[in-house]
Amino acid sequence: MSDQAPGASYAPALETPRSPYRRSKATRTNWELYGWLFMRMSGLALVVLVFGHLFVNLMTGDGIHQVDWGFVAGKWSSPFWQVWDLLMLWLAQLHGTNGVRTVINDYAERDATRFWLKMALYLATTIVIVVGTLVIFTFDPCADPNSMLEICRAAGSTVPTITN
């Protein structure tokens, strides 16, 4: 391979034991620490948000069979469920993205592979968060003309009809 003598300069210099050293010279920020903390904080919030979501959608009423457009309209006519689902969307997507980022960093060995996998990941994340947020805020629970929702009937009653 090379004509270098064993034990020559390619080995890092040995420090004396307990000599002071800086743990991180490469970065100036605590970005990874905040990421680590975010995984734990968002994880705790998601336990409540996701378990609540699963219970209301799958355990009450007819379970999976109750879920249709009217069911979603009923939930999203309330700011409570809009905020619930918005928090769940953002926290779950960012928590999942950071998790998959870690998986990519662990298994993709080539620099270019790692870079492009993460770019694809961030693109998918941006699309999901933007589309999901727009859907929650632009959804019209009264878009179905046959809606039996309270707020849709109240709004409908103010519209002049053919009889008056």
Partner: peptide, 23 residues
């Protein structure tokens, strides 16, 4: 389990997004 949930989340946000197309 994390990777599985991540891929389902992607599908689930997109299937839910069809509420904006029509009932």
């Amino acid at each position: 389990s994390g990777v599985l949930i991540f891929f389902f989340l992607f599908v689930h946000v997109l299937d839910t997004a069809t509420v904006r197309i029509s009932p």
